[in-house]
Amino acid sequence: MADFSPPKKHAAGGDVAHATARLIEEHRAALTGHCYRMLGSAAEADDAVQETMVRAWRSLDQFEGRAALRTWLYRIATHVCLDALNERSRRARPMELGPPNALEGPLTTLPSYRWVEPIPDVRAVPADADPAELVALRQSIRLAFVAALQHLPPRQRAVLLLMEVLGWPAAEVAETLDTSVASVNSALQRARATLATRDLTDARAPLSDAQSVLVDRYVDAFERYDVTALTALLHEEATLSMPPYALWLRGHEPIRGWLLGPGAGCRGSRLVPTAACGSPAFGQYRPPGEPGGPHRPWALIVLELSGTRIAALNSFLDTEALFPRFGLPPELPPEPQGSAPEPQQGGAPERQGG
C-alpha cells in the first residue's frame, strides 16, 4: 500500500499538516463503505481508500472549501474506483455463475478476484452516523445488494451510489463525473431499471427482533450439529455457497445432504459472532484432529435472512485473509472436558465443506 505521510512541502506547517491528516483519517470508514459498494471487495476497498488519501493529501492545496471535506474525499474515491474498474472484470457470487450443483459433482475452485467478498461492518460504516443513516448504510453493504451493483457499468454504479445511498443532487454528481445533469439522470434511470430485475427486498429490510431470535436458534443448532433443527430454520429456497468453490446448493434436501455428508466434518464446530455486510456473521472454528487441541479457523459464515427463515448460508473459506480483517482469533482454546455437544448421525466427510 502507498505511504500516507505528509509531503515535504507541508513540513513548515507541521501542526496544521498533522491536524489535517487526522481530519482526513476520520472519514476512512465512510470512504471504505463507498469503495466496497463500488468494487465488491474489502481488500480492494482498502487499497482504494489508501490511494484516495494519498491523492487527497497531494492535492490538498486545491481544496477550496466550497464543499464539505467528506464530499471532496468521496469525489476522489469515486474516481479511484472508476480507474480500478477499468482494469478488471466484475465480481460475482456462486449463484450467478451457473445452476445449482449436484452433491456428487466436482469442487471447482475459482480465484479470489472472481468473488464478491464480505466486509466487516465496523470498517465500512462510520461511527458518527446517526441511527437512521446507520440502518441505511448497513443495508447498502448487504451481499445481495453489492452483488447486484456489480451488474451495472461503472459510471452507472457511481451515479446510483452517489444519489441513492449518499443522497447527492444530480448537479453535484454531474460535476463530480464531469458530465451533464441530463446524462446523470439517464444513467440513474438505467441503473434503477437493471436493479429492478433483481429481488432485493430482503437486502433493503432492517433486521427484526424475530430475526435476532432466529440467529440465536441457528447458533444453537449448528453448534449441536442438529441437522434436522438447522434445516427447519431454512427458507424452502435457501442457498448454501462456499467461495472460493463454485459449488452452490438450493433447497432443504441438497443442503441437508451436504451437512450430513461432505459437510459433516463441521460437527463439533464453535462459532464466534461478528457482523459482515450489515448481516449476522460468525467465525467458524472446526474441532481439532487430536484430543485436547484448539479449534482452528474454517470459514466466515454470513447469514442472509428472509422473514423468519434463513435465505442463504454463505461460508467464505479464505480464513487466512478474512479472520485478521474481522479481528477474529487465530484459534480457540480447547473446551473443558465433557462440554462437547452430542454428535448427530451423518455420513463421513468425503470432501471439505461446512
Rank of each mutant, 00 (worst) to 15 (best):
M1V: 06
D3L: 12
D3H: 07
D3Q: 12
S5F: 01
S5K: 06
H10K: 00
V16L: 14
A17L: 04
A17T: 14
E26R: 14
H27F: 10
A30G: 15
A30D: 15
L31K: 12
T32S: 13
T32D: 01
H34Y: 12
C35F: 04
R37H: 00
L39Q: 07
D46R: 13
T52W: 02
R55K: 09
W57F: 02
S59R: 14
L60R: 12
Y74I: 09
R75S: 10
I76A: 01
H79F: 10
V80R: 10
L82Q: 09
L97W: 05
G98V: 10
P99I: 12
P100G: 05
N101S: 15
L103Q: 05
G105S: 15
P106L: 09
T109F: 07
P111L: 05
W115D: 06
V116K: 00
P118K: 03
P118Q: 02
D121E: 08
D121K: 06
A124V: 04
D128Q: 10
D128L: 10
D128K: 05
A129L: 09
P131D: 12
L134G: 02
S140F: 01
R142H: 13
R142F: 08
R142P: 12
L143A: 13
V146R: 02
A147E: 12
A147D: 13
Q156F: 00
A158S: 09
V159A: 06
V165R: 15
G167R: 11
W168P: 01
P169C: 08
A171G: 08
E172Q: 14
S180M: 03
S180T: 15
A182D: 14
A187L: 13
R190P: 00
L195R: 07
D199Q: 09
L200E: 08
T201H: 07
A205I: 04
P206F: 05
V215N: 04
D216K: 09
D220V: 12
E223Q: 15
R224M: 01
V227N: 06
A229E: 11
T231E: 14
A238M: 01
A238P: 04
S241H: 08
M242F: 10
P243N: 10
P244C: 08
R250T: 14
I255H: 03
G257H: 09
L260A: 03
G261Q: 12
G263M: 00
G263V: 04
G263L: 02
G265E: 12
R267Q: 15
G268S: 01
S269M: 07
V272A: 02
A281W: 02
R286F: 13
R286L: 14
P287G: 04
P287E: 03
G289A: 11
E290K: 13
P291G: 02
G292A: 01
G293N: 10
H295E: 02
V302G: 09
L303I: 07
E304I: 06
G307W: 01
G307A: 07
A312S: 15
A312E: 13
L317V: 06
E320W: 07
A321F: 06
A321N: 13
P324C: 04
L332F: 03
Q337I: 09
G346R: 10
G347H: 10
P349S: 10
